[in-house]
Design a protein around this nucleic acid. Structure first.
Lengths: 186, 186
DNA sequence: TTTTCCATGTAAGTCGTTACATGATTGC
DNA sequence: GCAATCATGTAACGACTTACATGGAAAA
């Protein structure tokens, strides 16, 4: 139940149309809350029906026509309520760790190449975050909003740093391992 | 599409009944792939129908009776195939980071308490992982299987370490912040 | 004018969550 | 016997994914 609040946040930062939101969910907010355009359009409909947002009156709502939304007072209140509410952390789900555990039973054949690929992807993401940091958060002048957003970006940077380090370590471990099944060969 | 493979891995490590699997998904494998008993029973049914696992013939399959499963040859093959297949990393979803970004717009009131609570939870999880490491992976004698499983545990430890550090940092930042809305007061 | 892209949607199916149901076993 | 607990399920719903559909604008 976080997608509507992600959208409210994005719309408060800047009123947008569905497609503009979709683009921003490919970067920025999408770095820690992804969504497809189908999800976004459906949720925009619900939020409008619930009176939390409204279409900007300047544009006519025809199919194929741009339609921009802004957050209403009730929407801002709901976002503030949700932000302050206590929430339990969701349990992790990580396919790569699962595959490593499976490899301990059925063998590591074929896994190393994908680990290398993931390492590259994480290195690329890390570089992207670091560019954003240099561009948007130069040292010295941080306002209140900036300090919070910088904190979020730091989480992204530190997470990608963790993954690159962990994957590098995993790959060096792999160099000393046999490829096949470690136990009970079929 | 990872739950069946998580179950196959667990069953290869040790043939089990539905409830035993459920217990193990509360620890161990569940640390990076959670699942409820409903999911597990449904998936066991599918896996059996697909011929990847079978109920141990020693036990009679009555409702309310224990029923243990073991992995068949086809199941092991499918798990090996899946483990070696190239897979793209899933996009992140993190509610806490989203809430921080929302707080940059609607204010940080009420958030700090929950950050403290999350910090405690992550500290507790970290301590649990470190106990497991000391108990199951004493320095020196690592086999091939152990090296892989240790690697997975290290990922858990490093991730929890990251979260505790990041949350601590976030809380010190909060000390210097006003509680209300940073911009556009309602 | 046909194609391509932009922009907004619909529909179907899978996965996960929450709530409930049922039979067997054990302790009182 | 009765209640509590163990063990295995069913049902309904919501969230997310994948594939497809529609209309308008711009370009070839």
């Amino acid at each position: 139940m976080s997608l509507p609040h992600a959208i409210l946040t994005a719309l408060l930062e800047k009123p947008s149309s569905g497609l503009e939101l979709t683009r921003r969910f490919d970067r920025s907010i999408g770095y820690f809350w992804s969504a497809t355009h189908q999800q976004i359009y459906r949720e925009l409909g619900k939020l409008e029906a619930d009176g939390l947002i409204r279409a900007l009156p300047s544009e006519q709502p025809a199919r194929g026509q741009k339609k921009s939304y802004e957050v209403l007072h009730a929407g801002r209140a709901e976002l503030a309520r949700w932000t302050a509410a206590s929430q339990d952390p969701k349990p992790h789900r990580d396919t790569l760790l699962l595959r490593l555990r499976a490899a301990a039973v059925v063998g590591t054949a074929g896994l190393e190449a994908d680990l290398r690929r993931h390492l590259q992807l994480h290195e690329r993401q890390l570089a992207e975050y670091q560019e954003i940091e240099q561009r948007d958060f130069p040292p010295g002048r941080d306002g209140t909003e900036d300090r919070l957003r910088h904190l979020v970006l730091r989480a992204g940077i530190d997470l990608e740093t963790f993954w690159t380090q962990w994957l590098s370590r995993a790959l060096t471990e792999f160099d000393g391992l046999p490829d096949g099944e470690p136990t009970r060969p079929a």
